[in-house]
Amino acid sequence: MLEVITGVVLAASAGLNAYIPMLGLGLLSRFTDLVELPGGWAWLENGWCMGILGVLLLVEVLVDKFPALDSVNDILQTVVRPASGGMVFAAGAASDTVAVSDPAAFVQSGQVWPIVVGVVVALIPHALKSFARPVLNVLTGGAAAPVTSAAEDAGSVALVILAVVVPVVALLLLIGIIIFLIVRLRRALAARRARRGEQAAANVTPAAS
């Protein structure tokens, strides 16, 4: 059960930032005793691979802080984030971590399904993020972009670490983040409707007089 929670949390983290969980697993496996990746995913701790992921992460972090560019980035990441979610779900759930010491039964249950589940899980926070960001940018004149992006990056890092060490706590944090994203999206949509209503009323008033 813990291996499934670890995989789910890692996949959700990828929905916020595609590269943080992949790089995080590689770093934790190579430089700590917290993660031991299975043979099929050992490439994540390769130096060249981590270097490339680090560069991609830097680009993602910078681009995601600018309004308009962040929305374009979200469109491009519609493929990357779910793909990353599928990979980290499979890799994380099959890893030997401090919380999961016998993932063999999970791995033997099928090699494709963990990836499919990870893709679906990653799509949820990605979709919430992609829908909410443009609305927030319009309502705040772009001021929300860097703050929101930084919070999402911090949440992704926290999810990766907790997923490896204390998966149940990570799951609770994930639930909190999903609720926060949903509430933020609903408030942003309500504010946009209110603004449109005010603009419509302002346009009608002069014509009536």
Rank of each mutant, 00 (worst) to 15 (best):
M1N: 11
M1H: 10
L2W: 06
I5E: 06
V8Q: 04
V9N: 04
L10P: 12
A12D: 05
G15I: 03
L16Y: 10
A18V: 04
P21L: 07
M22V: 06
L23G: 03
G26V: 04
S29N: 15
S29G: 13
R30Y: 14
R30M: 13
D33Y: 14
L34H: 07
V35A: 03
E36Q: 13
E36P: 02
L37E: 05
P38R: 01
G39Y: 10
G40I: 13
W41T: 09
W43I: 07
G47P: 09
G47A: 15
V55I: 11
L56C: 06
L56F: 09
L56M: 10
L57E: 02
V61Y: 02
L62Q: 09
F66R: 07
F66G: 04
P67M: 09
A68V: 14
A68S: 11
A68M: 13
D70F: 04
V72G: 10
N73Q: 15
Q77C: 06
Q77A: 04
T78N: 09
V79A: 13
V80Y: 05
A83I: 10
A83W: 04
S84A: 15
S84C: 07
F89V: 03
A91Y: 02
A91F: 03
D96S: 12
D96C: 08
A99N: 06
S101C: 00
S101H: 03
D102I: 00
A105D: 07
V107E: 02
V107I: 11
Q108R: 08
S109W: 08
S109R: 01
G110Y: 12
P114A: 08
I115Q: 01
I115D: 01
V119D: 03
V119P: 03
V119G: 02
L123I: 08
L123R: 08
A127V: 14
K129Y: 08
K129I: 01
P134A: 05
N137C: 09
T140S: 09
G141E: 01
G142R: 01
A144I: 07
V147Q: 12
V147P: 13
D153W: 02
S156G: 08
V157Y: 04
L159H: 01
L162N: 02
A163L: 05
V165P: 02
V169Q: 00
A170L: 00
L171C: 00
L174W: 06
G176N: 14
I177V: 15
F180S: 13
F180L: 14
L181Q: 09
L181R: 08
I182F: 10
V183R: 05
R184L: 14
L185D: 07
L189V: 15
A190L: 13
A190K: 13
R195Y: 10
G197Q: 09
Q199D: 14
A201E: 11
N203C: 15
T205F: 11
T205G: 12
P206V: 15
A207Y: 12
